[in-house]
Structure formats: structure tokens, C-alpha cells
């Protein structure tokens, strides 16, 4: 590598996104840092409204403006400073170097073009090949995602949900992007279909050495295909680290709450321990730690100061001021 990028495909510093609407300012993302190495997969976990989609859109510089306002200290993809790019240059890298799979496969496809044309469009645009060549490559892509190439001439409505999502994946991967942002790619699908799609994404990622950010609210999916995890709450990352650290040595009370809310497949009699209360309104965030009102460990101090991410060890960081106390620990059983 000649580029000066410290071996990182993605580096983001202090990303802030707010939506200035008629009703007030929605603070969707409030200063997050992300670092992602080549061929790594980061799971971005959080509940509805945590700001996951907004973060992904900001990385592609696709946040709708108005009402969205993005501030960022550093946004480098593969060593290139995206912040300085004009819209032509952005169009060039979108779909080619970095591409996104959107949340809803049903609306991501244009109903008036065949799926073959839609895959070919992106190839034609970025690789400057002829239309016939692009269509041939589109057929290859379809086969890659497990759809016979004979169906390239079908329209999206002739496909089932799972197949549409495969087409969307084919479009996203058509130009071998280095970074793939997958925004809840399987939420709309059934479990058995979800399993197929996840397996496919896993295979393709290996094959093309793609780095990936997997946005989801399902910790099970994270466990399955991610190397690293970042847990988001109210526009901030509250805990991040390697999969093993976050899952087996959970530190943040919110992460603990998420785990405790899930029914345990092994011990069906175990009572669920939900997080009390509700997610704060991003238009009206509480002072201090946004999770404090719902947190069983919160003290007066938590409501005063916004906690910053602090390293526990080199592969694990948590944003909770209680860890300033030397013997503070959460209740969740530490797994072996």
C-alpha cells in the first residue's frame, strides 16, 4: 500500500448529523468515530432511531440536505479525503469504491426496468464498458447471487422478497466495491431466507476481500458475520470492540440490557429483563449520558456529563463514567 491510510479502509472522526426540521432539531448522530481495517466487518447495532441509517448515509455523503446538516472532522475512505470531493467525483466512487444495500429491498429497485438492466447500469457507469458487455456481466452477477441468468429480463415485481434482496446485493457488488454498507439487509426477510442471504454475503465478502459495515438491530446476525461491533444509542457509540470482547465481556449497561431483553434459547424459563422506559427523543436529548434515565447503574453524575469512549484494553472501548470507579462492574455473567 502506497496510500497513507494506516491500513484503514475507513476512518471517520467526530461525525455529527442533525436534521433541522420545522418541529426542531433532530440530533441524529452526535459525534462518532469509526475505524475499519481492510477485509474487516463491523456490526453497527442499535434500536430504531439510534442513527444507524443516518451514519451510513453520511459516509456516502447522501444525507438529504435540507433538512440534514453534516459536520465531520475527518472522513477518509481508502486514504482519500471524501470531504473535499465535488459531486462528480462522489458519483464516481459511489457504487464503485463504496456501495450501499438499503433497508427495504421492495423500494430499492426501479419497477420499470428489468433487473438485468439495473445491474448493468451501475457497471456501465463505472467501468465504461459497452451495454452488451455490461449486460453480460449483469448475468454473471445474478448467477453469483444464486439467480439463473435467464431471469435477467424479468421485472422486480416478478421476484420474491428474498430474490429482490439478492438483486440489490448484486447491484451493490457489481463493481467490486472495497467497502460495502449493508443497512439491515435481511430485516424484511424470513429466517430461512435470511440465512441464505447472510451466507451469500459472507461468501462474497471472502471472495472479493470486501470490507463491510453491517447495520442491524439483531445481535444474532452480528454474532454470525461480524468481526467488530459498535453499539449505538441516541446517536453515539456507547461500546465498541471486537466481537468476542463485546459479546463475552460486555461493559456498557445498554449492551447488557439488549442481551437481557432477548429470550434465551437455552434456558427457556429464564425471565426476560427488559430495559425499562423508552429511547429518548432525539429532538430533546437528556443532558449527560443519554442512557442514564433508563440505566439501573446511573448516578447523579451520569446525568451531568456526556461520557466519552474510553479504552478498556486495546480492542475494547466503552462510554460510561462509572468505569472511572475502579471496582465497578455490570451484572451480566461474563461468559468463558
Amino acid at each position: 500500500m502506497t496510500k497513507n491510510n494506516n491500513g484503514l479502509i475507513l476512518e471517520v472522526n467526530n461525525l455529527v448529523v442533525r436534521y433541522e426540521t420545522m418541529d426542531g432539531i433532530v440530533r441524529a448522530v452526535n459525534g462518532i468515530d469509526l475505524k475499519l481495517g481492510y477485509k474487516r466487518t463491523l456490526g453497527l447495532v442499535g434500536e430504531t432511531g439510534a442513527g444507524k441509517t443516518t451514519t451510513a448515509l453520511a459516509l456516502l455523503r447522501l444525507v438529504p440536505d435540507p433538512p440534514g446538516i453534516v459536520e465531520c472532522e475527518k472522513l477518509e475512505i481508502d486514504g482519500e479525503n471524501i470531504l473535499t470531493f465535488d459531486s462528480d467525483k462522489l458519483d464516481q466512487i459511489r457504487g464503485k469504491d463504496i456501495s450501499m444495500i438499503f433497508q427495504d429491498p421492495m423500494t430499492a429497485l426501479n419497477p420499470v426496468y428489468t433487473v438485468g438492466e439495473q445491474i448493468a447500469e451501475s457497471i456501465e457507469l463505472h467501468e465504461h464498458v459497452s451495454k452488451t458487455e455490461a449486460l453480460k456481466r449483469a448475468g454473471d452477477m445474478l448467477e453469483l447471487v444464486g439467480i439463473p441468468r435467464s431471469r435477467a429480463n424479468d421485472y422486480p415485481h416478478q421476484f420474491s422478497g428474498g430474490m429482490k434482496q439478492r438483486v440489490v446485493i448484486a447491484i451493490a457488488l457489481a463493481c467490486n466495491p472495497q467497502l460495502l454498507l449493508a443497512d439491515e439487509p435481511t430485516t424484511a426477510l424470513d429466517v430461512t431466507i435470511q440465512a441464505q442471504v447472510l451466507e451469500l454475503m459472507h461468501e462474497l465478502k471472502e471472495k472479493y476481500n470486501t470490507s463491510m459495515i453491517m447495520i442491524t438491530h439483531d445481535l444474532g446476525i452480528v454474532a454470525e458475520i461480524c468481526d467488530e461491533v459498535a453499539v449505538m444509542y441516541a446517536g453515539r457509540i456507547v461500546e465498541e470492540g471486537t466481537l468476542e470482547k463485546v459479546f463475552n465481556h460486555t461493559k456498557h449497561p445498554y449492551t447488557e440490557g439488549l442481551f437481557n431483553s432477548l429470550p434465551n434459547v437455552k434456558d427457556r424459563k429464564a425471565k426476560l429483563k427488559p430495559i425499562k422506559g423508552l429511547m429518548p427523543d432525539p429532538m430533546d436529548l437528556p443532558p449527560g449520558c443519554a442512557f442514564a434515565p433508563r440505566c439501573d447503574y446511573a448516578t447523579e453524575a451520569c446525568t451531568q456529563k456526556v461520557p466519552t469512549l474510553t479504552s478498556i484494553d486495546e480492542a475494547h472501548r466503552v462510554a460510561c463514567i462509572r468505569y472511572d470507579e475502579p471496582d465497578f462492574h455490570i451484572e451480566r455473567r461474563i461468559l468463558s
Binding site: V191, T192, Q194, E199, G220, V222, L243, V265, L335
Partner: peptide, 15 residues
Amino acid sequence: AIPVPDLSEKRRRIS
């Protein structure tokens, strides 16, 4: 096919 949020459990998946 259920994804389980538990790293200790590596099951064989029937796809």
C-alpha cells in the same frame, strides 16, 4: 437458521 447471539454456540446450519 435462527441467528443466536452467543459466540460459544457454533451450530451446523441446514440451508
